[in-house]
Write a protein that binds this DNA or RNA. Structure first.
Lengths: 210, 210
DNA sequence: TAGATTGTTAATCGATTAACAATC
DNA sequence: TAGATTGTTAATCGATTAACAATC
């Protein structure tokens, strides 16, 4: 069955629902109503139902959604069938924070390599991941079949490193640098800018002061 | 002059434009066309012009926007007149990464305190910021007039800590934990979820594989 | 049944883009 | 002038919400 393209926001929420559902399961909860799931995320029950409609899941009874089934259905939609290998590019404070965060959490996404310039890190394990030299990006990406890169390098090397990742055949990049990147449309790019987030909070806090 | 409410996305882009413009200024560029600014961010020139229209700035000549003036106008819109004090709650890898990132960068936003449970950090400087005990959140927030909190604590203490921050009178929270938070509407909440971002990249990478 | 809940269509809201007159 | 650029209105697109029939 070929799946229709999901709205971006729905994909994001499905990822979040799944984690909440896993918590519910761990607590022994077998069914959950749309309004319960909605309250846990400060959104409306209609939105939850619409998202679930998109993935074609139905609850059958009026007892709410079956937690276990829903977890599996979401997994079937957003997970890849095969494992997807991930690399951290730049294993400084941020790189280590992200790595520590993910290690052992998700089954289909595996952080299989880190890259850095620091000779003290190269060829060692850092936060549980083998660190390679930046010089070997191309080889290691191919050798380990890495399709996704998390970019946590200093701003001045962001553009150059991205160029090399694209050349090496990476398919998706999650960019934590404050440099806007240019990639071909065949590479999926997700950018997160901490400074913007903080300035945004500051702006809305100021506004309220009115 | 009372400023009209800006769209959220416009606020985000203004923050990004400003940093690009500061780079341009540093490179001695005095004027910039809408299409140049657009190309630097992979967006359209129309969008840039519309954002600039929102803040009521005009270029006067057909020589593009005056870089310096535009920086100032954006600052006048998104910055607070007074300084805004920021605290990092939880100064682990992520907290340190963020702190290092911001230190000395922005003039109106100041990270003035960190909080942690680790006795080795309390009452010391960590990444250039004084670290206080979590037990003293309420006092220090008031004493130092902290209006914004960056939440980088472990998931299991996220909800409790948020409760205390709200009680202490915080006005805005930037949440990096994977726990969705509940705050009164008077507190501006911005959430960033790394796991969702990575799962989203993975989903779209998979899709392309078709 | 009456009440709670779901799934879905239509309406609304917000953000982006197309189109174009005005300006230098 | 002709060409490039801007500022702005109208049209489009995408996401959320309101409304409601169907189900248990």
């Amino acid at each position: 069955m070929k799946m229709m393209k999901l709205p971006e926001k729905t994909v994001e929420r499905l990822s979040i629902y799944r984690r909440t559902l896993l918590d519910c399961l761990a607590q022994g909860k077998t069914h959950i109503f749309s309004h319960e799931l909605a309250n846990l995320h400060n959104i409306t029950a209609v939105q939850v139902r619409r998202d679930i409609m998109f993935i074609g899941y139905s609850s059958m009874q009026r007892k709410g959604y079956d937690v276990k089934e829903l977890i599996d259905v979401i997994g079937g939609i957003i997970d890849s069938e095969a494992r997807q290998n991930v690399a951290i590019i730049g294993i400084g404070n941020l790189g280590r924070a992200i790595t520590t965060y993910f290690m052992g959490k998700r089954s289909k996404l595996n952080i299989v390599a880190a890259f850095d310039l620091d000779p003290n890190k190269i060829d060692r394990m850092v936060s549980g991941v083998k660190c390679y030299s930046m010089q070997n990006i191309e080889e290691v990406v191919k050798e380990k079949d890495i399709s996704i890169a998390i970019l946590t390098v200093p701003a001045d090397s962001a553009a150059g490193t991205t160029e090399r990742l694209v050349q090496a055949g990476i398919r998706g990049i999650l960019n934590f640098t404050t440099v806007p990147l240019n990639v071909p449309s065949s590479v999926h790019l997700e950018e997160y800018d901490m400074i913007t987030s903080l300035e945004k909070v500051a702006y809305f806090v100021k506004k309220q002061a009115g």
